[in-house]
Design a protein around this nucleic acid. Structure first.
Lengths: 349, 349
DNA sequence: ATGAAAGCGCTAACAT
DNA sequence: ATGTTAGCGCTTTCAT
């Protein structure tokens, strides 16, 4: 009797040890060859050939679970999106793929549809699966969840924004300066009252955008009244606040919309009010979803270097994975030019 | 000296065995409690409480790699998309999430941007990671890759279409009958020559759609000429063939476009030719991307039950995972009503 | 009601 | 130039 056989020699030889036994070699040798370390270990060319041939023949597929368990590295990262709507996620993932370069790391995308509870579960699942790191477009209320990921020792990079006060965690995001580009464009057209339509959001970049809006107005010597800043709850309708702004005396002649969908809804509201755009009121936004530039809209916007954002995140994450003790990286991706559409024009006098 | 300590009792007790040692219990007991099997194993309530408390305290996170290795089940499925553009992937994944129900299975999304080579790598990676199954929107030329997945014993379900001849693999797709709805609409408007603008594609559903087109014409007693069927290479421009069709004598009065982007490009070509839509030529398509219904277009279309497709795929995959030996499932998801836009009208006489 | 122990498939010291 | 071996962290039969 031979020693106890651990890996059952079933018909389909699927394990590395099985392959080794089959060839009368040790798992070590097979492992080294299959991982391209044959050179370093000076394996006989003859042996290499035999191993490669056998692996091919039995269609050997390594078990990444076993490997990951052993190596404490999975060569996978998690990418957490709130949704996959529009082209945003597409462009981000393209950027991520580019940023990952040839590192053989696979981005595994998950999506929580805005549910914090689902996000928590997904983050936990990714941590349990021992991904090497996580890129996450954060929800405004996820502070504790992200902290937990961090505490569990998994490298984390925020994409696009970052919960306020979580400076210990890295992020890569679009430079809020883009807001200034849009607002300055409106100012140059002669507008003096430019309303800000945004979302109540305590995150770092969101807050910075509001600040840029205010600073840009001030730099131009314009008053920045609080009532011109509308901050809705996420998902809430802008109809009421916009109507109210338009009803007041000395109404705003221009709107800056923080997101494209806000801009589009404003266009509808203006039409319903019998106001022409841009003759009566101008509308500008930032970001470039296909809808913004669609023939029906052609909204003036500042184009967003979406891919660059993704790329920066991936590059950043790789650095942290390489050196987990390093200081957090906070990167603002600049760029995106003004795209003048049909929704901005000179201030009516 | 105690027996050799396997799990190093470092500061952070992170493993199950570590936890057990910490509590003076066996891994067995801890494992059962942590997996909700306490009842079945009649663990003392007191013990349960202690374990749960300790797990909480040290923030124990199970290692899914180890569990998967042991159980041969990862509670994850792979979802392979060519791209995440538009709302399609979003709606599909929503459907998948719904179809997965409360099965605690996580869909891991990957994306190959149309590259067969990348698709091969991703499929292999998913297999190596031992996902429980894969949902894949197949490329037209991926026959061998999909067969390989199958041969490696991983449950696979095609989403939206299936390579011809791969009947051994399950699929869930939108019922090609939708084509008939669009074409019949054009026929009812009096059109006699309706051109078909599609893509050269040997997949099952793609071919079935062409058949439905022909059958629908024949049922109405209309001739179905070969020159009215344009099958482009994927990505190729429709300008030349459409111009040619329009230039001929007795030109088509209506176009059926297989995809929304084709329809949109046709709209542009017509305009460039000085033809009005729908007064001179009608255009209809199937599917509902936001662009189709955008105010600039409003193309007549048959809406697609995208979420239902995803849901059907997930349900199908779960069945196969449950019983891998069962016959392949081929499911056609019906539905989607005609949405009459501004691009179809009565046939000009 | 709880524990001992084997082993999932792989890698990487450490031999020889 | 190749082999031995000890785990990675978990589940699960079989004991007690």
């Amino acid at each position: 009797m031979t020693a106890k056989i651990k890996n059952k020699p079933t018909g389909r030889v699927t394990t590395l040890s099985g392959l080794a036994k089959h060839l009368g070699l040790s798992p070590t040798t097979v492992s080294f060859v299959l991982n391209g370390q044959a050179e370093a270990r000076k394996i006989a060319p003859e042996t290499i050939k035999r191993i490669l041939a056998a692996a091919e023949e039995v269609d050997y597929v390594p078990n990444a679970l076993a490997r990951g368990l052993r190596q404490k590295r999975t060569h996978a990262i998690g990418v957490v999106f709130p949704h996959l709507k529009g082209d945003w996620a597409h462009r981000i993932t393209q950027g991520i793929a580019e940023g990952l370069g040839d590192s053989k790391t696979v981005p595994l995308i998950v999506c929580h549809y805005g549910s914090g509870e689902l996000e928590r579960e997904l983050l936990r699942s990714l941590v349990e699966r021992r991904v090497d790191g996580i890129i996450c477009n954060p929800l405004a209320d996820g502070f504790n969840r992200y902290l937990q990921v961090r505490d569990r020792g998994v490298p984390l990079v925020f994409l696009g924004d970052a919960p306020k006060g979580l400076d210990a965690i890295s992020y890569a995001a679009w430079d809020p300066a883009a807001v200034g580009v849009a607002v300055r464009h409106l100012i140059e057209l002669g507008h003096r009252r430019i309303a800000y339509l945004g979302v109540r959001d305590s995150r770092t970049i969101s807050a910075a955008r509001r600040r840029v809006y205010r600073d840009t107005l001030e730099e131009a010597g314009l008053a920045c009244s609080r009532r011109d800043i509308v901050l809705n709850e996420p998902g809430a309708d802008f109809e009421a606040p916009v109507r109210q702004l338009l009803a007041g005396p000395d109404r705003p002649t221009a709107f800056f919309a923080l997101y494209d969908d806000i801009a589009i809804s404003v266009l509808g509201i203006l039409r319903a009010q019998g106001l022409r755009c841009p003759e009566d009121v101008s509308v500008a936004t930032i970001g470039d979803s296909p809808l913004v530039s669609a023939p029906g809209h052609q909204i003036t916007t500042v184009s967003c270097p979406v891919e660059e954002e993704g790329k920066a995140c991936a590059a950043c994450l790789e650095q942290i994975i390489q050196n987990p003790k390093r200081d957090p990286i906070h990167r603002l991706v600049p760029g995106g030019g003004l795209v003048v559409g049909r929704t901005t024009g000179p201030c009516p006098s």
